[in-house]
Simulated scan of single mutants.
Amino acid sequence: MSVGAQLSVTDLRRAARHPVDYPVIAEHHERGDIKMHVANLSAHGFMVDGADTIARGDRVIIRLPEIGRIEAYCIWTRDERAGFQFERIIRLDDFMRIIESLQPNPRLRRSR
């Protein structure tokens, strides 16, 4: 008898993503500081563009408003984009505060 579905990386990608325009300096273990641009964000991870030096499996630490430093690892790359999954899920109340600080346009924010 099945005990329920286990979430996979593909399932996590279905989480609501919020468009943001957030430049960060990521800490990479081997390459040091890397400038990246976060294009969208969810409670599970984020996507960057202009990430031509990032490879699948790379780990970085970024700093987000409200929660500070958080580690993430690259789960996919395509052209100059890369998708990262956080080491831990961001709590909903913290995530909503992050979105409010990164999306000054209220029309882009989800209703509570």
Rank of each mutant, 00 (worst) to 15 (best):
T77F: 01
M47D: 02
P23V: 01
V20E: 10
P19Y: 01
A82Y: 04
D49G: 03
A55V: 04
R69W: 13
E27F: 04
V38Y: 02
V60R: 04
R81E: 06
A26W: 06
I54L: 15
Y22W: 10
H29M: 03
E30M: 05
D79H: 08
V48D: 04
G45N: 12
A82Q: 07
I61N: 09
R31V: 03
E66D: 13
H28C: 01
K35T: 11
R59C: 01
H37F: 15
V24C: 11
V48Y: 00
G32P: 11
G83R: 00
G83S: 00
P65W: 03
H18S: 13
F46R: 02
E66G: 05
A26S: 08
F46Y: 12
I34E: 15
D21K: 02
F46G: 00
T77W: 08
H29D: 12
A51H: 06
K35H: 11
I61L: 12
Y73L: 06
S42T: 10
L41I: 10
V24D: 09
E30Y: 06
D79E: 14
E71R: 10
H29F: 11
D58I: 04
M36C: 14
R78L: 13
G50R: 10
V38R: 02
G83D: 01
H29Q: 15
R63M: 04
H44E: 12
T53D: 13
R81K: 05
I70D: 04
I75W: 00
K35R: 15
C74V: 12
C74K: 03
W76S: 14
T77I: 09
D52P: 02
D33P: 11
G57P: 11
H18P: 02
V60Y: 07
V48P: 12
K35V: 05
I34K: 14
L64W: 05
D33N: 14
D79L: 08
I70A: 00
A55F: 15
A72W: 09
Y22P: 13
V38G: 03
I61M: 12
M47P: 02
D33H: 10
A51V: 05
H44I: 07
A72T: 02
H37C: 04
P19D: 08
G68E: 11
M36E: 13
Y22R: 06
T77A: 12
D49R: 11
I75L: 05
N40R: 03
G57N: 11
H37K: 11
M36T: 03
A55T: 13
D52V: 03
I67E: 04
C74H: 09
D33F: 12
L41D: 08
V24E: 02
E27A: 14
Q85W: 02
D79M: 05
I34Y: 12
Q85S: 03
I75G: 00
V24M: 10
E30P: 02
D21R: 03
V20Q: 07
V24W: 05
E27W: 04
I25W: 06
V38C: 05
A51K: 03
I62T: 10
I75M: 09
H28E: 14
G83I: 00
I25G: 00
Y22H: 15
R31H: 14
I61W: 09
T77K: 08
T77P: 04
G50M: 07
P65F: 06
A51D: 07
C74A: 15
G83E: 01
H44M: 13
H29Y: 04
A39Q: 13
E80R: 08
G45R: 07
H44V: 13
G45Q: 09
A55W: 10
G57V: 07
V20A: 06
